[in-house]
Amino acid sequence: MRTKRNHLLVFILTFGVFSILNTEMGVIGILPLIAEHYEVSISTAGLIVSLFALAVAVSGPILPLLFSGMNRKHVMLFVLGIFIVGSLVSAITSNFTVLVIARVVPAFFHPVYCSLAFTVAAASVPKEEAPKAVAKVFVGVSAGMVLGVPLSSLIATSTSLFYAMLFFAAVTIIAFVATLLFVPSMPVTKRISMGTHLYVLRRSVMWLSIAGVIFMNGAVFGVYSYLAEFLKTVTRYDWNTVSVLLFLYGLANMVGNMIAGKLLANFPLRTIKMYPIALITVYILLFTFGQFSVPTAFLIFIWGIIGGIGGNITQYWVVSAAPEAPELSNGIFLTSSNLGTTLGASVCGLIVTGISTQYIVVGGIVFLIFSIVTNYFRISMTGRFEGSKVEG
């Protein structure tokens, strides 16, 4: 019975994370419609994406810590409620500034829910099974990215922008009701002291973990940010095929999430060491064979699986540096991953404008080389070997 309850809890957490990532990423598919509806430029409309990410990065290390002493169920309901209100306001407002505010305010609470989801999922199972539970929650992250964009675009083009925004609210309402009805009360019996949190932030191993996450995430999302452009200009796919391949990448990401849970539970260090080497290999092959349609499609699928594994690795890398402060370390992970995405996209954007789109993989390879260096020092500092859990 307990096992069934734990499975249900992890499923609800996964769906809750999906609802939040769906709200965050789904608007990417309707940015042109938002720009047209509010009579702003596409770059101005893009503020609702970039400012959302900035809010997540800023609040990541702070708000999860502030809420860490409260009943976890109440906190999750509070955050989901804020996202519901934000989506409803976004649906009815005719003012672009109000739309931006309705997007950015919930974004500050994004790390609170996601941090709790990872923490609660890991705590709901035996310690050795924690990576597998977290991997299941990561499926919600990938699903939000994979399904949110095409679904919101389909709804908006079939009906209107209003109903696309209502779609975000409806999904979050389902997560809210499921949490209310089926998630047990989770009061915090022992709050971690501020001194412990400050001690965590003074650890060299934590800062090496943060650097590793920034470089690993930058390597994936820096290149992914321009994947559509790569497929269009280098491989010369038509836009319909590009959409299919982006969807394929996302599905492969979800497969990678599930594989990562087993790998990190059984072979953590070996997985972390091999990850950048595997991704460098894919990038070299993509650079070499990117002009050919069939090899490129195969490489996109393999890249998606490796990218999904990488998402779990980055979360594991930070949390294992401070297992005694999971809310704080998960918040730091979210901030680090967002910083990595921003930095990677900026560097690869400079490569696109300064050299050519084909060379974006070079930016990814450079980030991966830096990650190998930082991860080497991180592993050396912990003094752990294969077969043991990596803890800072």
Rank of each mutant, 00 (worst) to 15 (best):
V244I: 15
I84P: 13
Y275A: 05
G46L: 03
F18K: 00
I30D: 09
R270L: 15
T342F: 12
L245I: 09
M25E: 14
L343E: 10
L99H: 09
N338E: 14
S225E: 04
F168A: 04
V366R: 01
P326W: 06
M145D: 12
T119G: 03
R270C: 15
I277M: 07
G69P: 12
G354T: 08
G195N: 13
G218K: 00
T196E: 14
T235W: 06
K132W: 04
I214L: 08
Y224T: 01
F221I: 13
L116I: 14
L343I: 15
I355G: 11
G140W: 00
M254Q: 05
F215C: 01
V100M: 14
S329V: 05
F167A: 01
H37E: 15
F287T: 11
A345G: 14
A156P: 14
L201N: 11
S204D: 13
F221L: 10
G69K: 13
L328C: 07
K232M: 06
G304C: 09
T97K: 10
L33S: 13
A325M: 02
L368S: 02
M145I: 15
T288N: 11
L47P: 12
Y38Q: 10
I28V: 15
I34H: 07
T159S: 12
N95Y: 09
L231I: 02
I372N: 11
V134R: 00
I272C: 07
P276V: 12
M186T: 05
A297T: 06
V352C: 03
T342V: 15
V171R: 08
V141Y: 00
R384A: 09
L334H: 14
L13Y: 05
K132R: 13
S293N: 08
V318L: 04
G340S: 10
T335A: 13
Y249Q: 04
R5G: 06
G331M: 05
V223H: 03
E327Y: 07
Y224H: 03
G387T: 01
G308Y: 01
A45E: 07
G261T: 10
I30E: 04
A53E: 06
S115G: 14
V10F: 03
I20L: 14
V85G: 04
F367I: 10
N257D: 09
G392P: 14
L286T: 04
P184E: 13
R191I: 13
E24P: 09
E24I: 03
L231M: 12
A321L: 01
V188A: 02
H197G: 09
G26C: 06
E386A: 08
L328H: 03
R2A: 11
A219Q: 06
F292S: 14
M186N: 05
F292W: 13
P106E: 09
A321I: 11
I365S: 10
V141F: 13
K262G: 02
T353C: 07
W239K: 01
F138N: 08
A260L: 10
T44P: 06
L263R: 07
F109I: 08
S115N: 06
I42D: 13
P323H: 05
I313R: 06
T374W: 02
T93Q: 10
A228R: 03
S94T: 15
I192D: 09
L63P: 00
V242N: 00
V141T: 05
V352G: 09
A156F: 05
F287M: 13
G69D: 15
I30C: 11
K4T: 09
I272E: 01
I259A: 10
S115T: 07
P111Y: 03
G60H: 02
V362Q: 06
